[in-house]
Design a protein around this nucleic acid. Structure first.
Length: 497
RNA sequence: GGUCGGGUGGCCGAGCGGUUAGGCAGUGGUCUGCAAAACCAUCUACAGCGGUUCAAAUCCGCUCCCGACCUCCA
C-alpha cells in the first residue's frame, strides 16, 4: 500500500501530504460550540468531521492530542442586542446564573455528541477558565505594538500588523477590499480602523459576565480564546486547526494575526474546514431560522421531519458526503441513509455469526481482500473521502451476504474471512465510528434467550402449518421493533434502528 | 458591490482527462407457506453554448442559475 495521508490545506488551497511536526505526536485544535443554545445539524457535521480526523490519525498510529474549546464567555451582538453578552442575556431571560446556563447546554452538547458516537476530545478547555491567559496575550500584543487601548477596551491594530505581515493569507482577502467594504457598526468610533477587532471589551453596566483586567472590568474579545488555548495546550505552532468554513473569516484569519503578533510564529500547519449543511439549498443557521436541533432529529419533533432519526443514521448520512462539500438535508436522503446504514450494520453482524463450509485459501479471495483494504486506505488518505470508503464497505457487504448463496464461487478460508471482518470492522467501527454500542450485556443475553424461545415456538407452528400463529408472532414482534427474517437454515432477527 | 465555491440520472451523493462510483427508489428474476431480508440482472446522468484534445462530467472561454463569506454562526 503506497498511498499516504493527504489533507486539503485551506491556506495553500491544495491537497498536501500530512507530515506532523513532531511524530508520532499530532496536535489538533477545533473550534467548539458556544454553549448558550442547543446544537443543530451543523454542529454535528463539524464534530463528526474532526472526530474522523481524530479517529483516523489514531488508526494510523499517531498519538493525537485533540483540543476543542467551549465558548462560555459570550461575545458581542449587533443591532438591538449590541454590547450585551449572549450568555448573560439568556440568563436574565431565564433567571439563572450565567454559569448555570453554560453547564446546562454543555451537558446537553456532550450527551448529543456522545449519541453521535463522537470520541470526546483530549482536552476541552473553557474560555472562562482562561481569562488570565487571555489578558496575558493581550498584554503581549500591546507590548509588541500590534494593539492599542481605547476607552477601556483593547483592539488589534490590523493596519499596523498588515504593514509587516500578510493579513488575509488564509481567507484570500485583500485589505483594501476589506476597507472599502466594511460596514458602519456602533462603537466603531473607539476603533482606529473598522477592520480592527476587540481583544478585550469593557463591559457595560448591565453586563454581568465580567472580569477585572488592567484596562477595565470586561470580557475577552471573540477571537482571542482560540489563540490562547491552542498555544497553551498544543504549543505556539501545531499541526491541525479545524472548524466550519464560516469561521474562515474573520475568526481564523484573526487567530493567525494574534498568534503571529504575540508569539512571532505561524500557529497552524494544516487548516481544515468543513462545509455547511443546507436546507433547501440554504445553509442552516440560527440567524436564518431554518435550523433543526439535533434533539429534534432524535425525537422527530419538528414539522420539517417525517420521522425520528437514529443518531448513527445522522452520522452515516453526514459521512456519505465529503466533508468539504455542502450537504443538502432532506427526509428522503435521510431515509435512504437509514436503510443503507442498516444494510452495512446487518452485514457485519451476520458476518460475525456466519458459519459456512470454508474453502482453502485462494488467490482470488486474497486479491479481493487486498483490493478492499487498499481502497479503504486510499479513500481515507485522499483527504478523508469517507463517501468512497463507505462505497467499498457496501462492496464488502454484498460479498458477505452473497456467501450464503450456493452459486457464490469465491468462498474464503476461515482465516481469510476473519481478515475480511477485521478490515470491515476497522473502518466501519473504529475509523468511521459507525458501530452501534451494545447496551447492557446482561440484558442482551437474556433477550437472545427470549428470542430463541419465541423463534422455536414459531418454527414449531410453521412445521404444523399453523401460519396464523407464526405470522402473529412475527407481526407482534414487528410492532415492537423486532424484525424476523426467515432463512434457509432457521430464522434470524434484529432490533430495528 | 468585493472575494470564493457550486450546478451529476427520480432523490442524495463520489469522481475532476480514457475504467460500473456507491446508497435509496423503480423494473424483472432467484429464494420463501406468505412476507421481510439477501442475491442476480436492469433502466434513467453529467446546466447551456463554443473551444482544446486521439479522447472531456473532468481542461479553457462565454452564458444562465444557485450558494457561502465580508455580521453572531459549524
Amino acid at each position: 500500500m503506497s498511498s499516504k495521508l493527504h489533507f486539503y490545506n485551506t491556506i495553500s488551497r491544495k491537497k498536501e501530504e500530512f507530515i506532523p511536526a513532531n511524530p508520532p505526536f499530532v496536535g489538533m485544535y477545533v473550534c467548539g460550540p458556544t454553549v448558550y443554545g442547543d446544537a443543530h445539524l451543523g454542529h454535528a457535521r463539524s464534530a463528526i468531521t474532526f472526530d474522523i480526523v481524530f479517529r483516523y490519525l489514531k488508526h494510523l498510529g499517531y498519538k493525537v492530542r485533540y483540543v476543542r474549546n467551549i465558548t462560555d464567555v459570550g461575545h458581542l451582538e449587533n443591532d438591538a442586542d449590541y454590547g450585551e453578552d449572549k450568555i448573560a442575556k439568556k440568563a436574565r431571560l431565564e433567571q439563572l446564573e450565567p454559569m448555570e446556563v453554560v453547564q446546562y447546554y454543555k451537558d446537553r452538547y456532550h450527551r448529543e455528541m456522545d449519541a453521535l458516537n463522537n470520541n470526546r476530545p483530549s482536552i476541552e478547555p473553557q474560555a472562562s477558565g482562561h481569562i488570565i491567559e487571555q489578558i496575558a496575550m493581550t498584554e503581549k500584543l500591546l507590548e509588541n505594538g500590534f494593539a492599542y487601548v481605547s476607552e477601556g477596551s483593547v483592539y488589534f491594530d490590523v493596519e499596523k500588523y498588515a504593514a509587516s505581515h500578510h493579513y488575509g493569507k488564509l481567507s484570500g482577502r485583500k485589505i483594501e477590499d476589506l476597507q472599502s467594504n466594511s460596514r458602519d457598526l456602533d462603537g466603531q468610533s473607539e476603533k482606529r480602523s473598522p477592520l480592527d477587532f476587540a481583544l478585550w471589551k469593557k463591559a457595560s453596566p448591565e453586563h454581568i459576565m465580567r472580569w477585572p483586567s488592567p484596562w477595565s472590568d470586561g470580557f475577552p474579545g471573540w477571537h482571542i480564546e482560540c489563540s490562547v488555548m491552542s498555544s497553551k495546550y498544543l504549543g505556539n505552532s501545531f499541526d491541525i486547526h479545524g472548524g466550519g468554513l464560516d469561521l474562515l473569516f474573520p475568526h481564523h484569519e484573526c487567530e493567525i494575526a494574534q498568534s503571529v503578533g504575540a508569539n512571532g510564529e505561524e500557529p497552524v500547519r494544516y487548516w481544515l474546514h468543513n462545509n455547511m449543511i443546507t436546507l433547501n439549498g440554504q445553509k442552516m443557521a440560527k440567524s436564518l431560522g431554518n435550523t433543526i436541533m439535533l434533539h429534534e432529529f432524535f425525537s422527530g419533533d419538528n414539522e420539517l421531519l417525517d420521522q425520528s432519526y437514529d443518531p448513527l443514521t445522522i452520522r452515516f448520512f453526514i459521512l456519505q458526503a465529503h466533508y468539504r462539500s455542502t450537504l443538502d438535508f432532506g427526509n428522503e436522503p435521510l431515509q435512504a441513509a437509514q436503510k443503507g446504514y442498516s444494510k452495512l450494520k446487518t452485514a457485519l453482524a451476520s458476518a460475525r455469526s456466519l458459519s459456512i463450509e470454508w474453502k482453502p485459501e485462494s488467490d482470488e479471495v486474497t486479491a479481493l481482500i487486498n483490493k478492499w483494504s487498499d481502497e479503504c486506505a486510499a479513500a481515507m488518505n485522499d483527504d478523508m473521502n469517507t463517501a468512497l470508503t463507505i462505497a467499498t464497505l457496501f462492496d464488502m457487504a454484498s460479498y458477505i451476504n452473497g456467501l450464503k448463496n450456493v452459486q457464490e464461487k469465491r468462498i474464503p478460508s476461515k482465516a481469510q474471512f476473519e481478515e475480511i471482518i477485521n478490515i470491515f470492522a476497522a473502518y466501519f467501527e473504529d475509523v468511521l465510528g459507525l458501530g452501534s454500542e451494545s447496551t447492557g450485556s446482561q440484558n442482551v443475553e437474556v433477550l437472545d434467550d427470549v428470542m430463541d424461545v419465541l423463534l422455536e415456538l414459531r418454527t414449531t407452528a410453521k412445521e404444523n402449518k399453523d401460519y396464523g400463529t407464526a405470522d402473529a408472532i412475527r407481526d407482534k414482534l414487528k410492532a415492537i421493533g423486532v424484525t424476523i427474517m426467515d432463512g434457509k437454515d432457521g430464522a434470524d432477527w434484529q432490533v430495528d434502528a
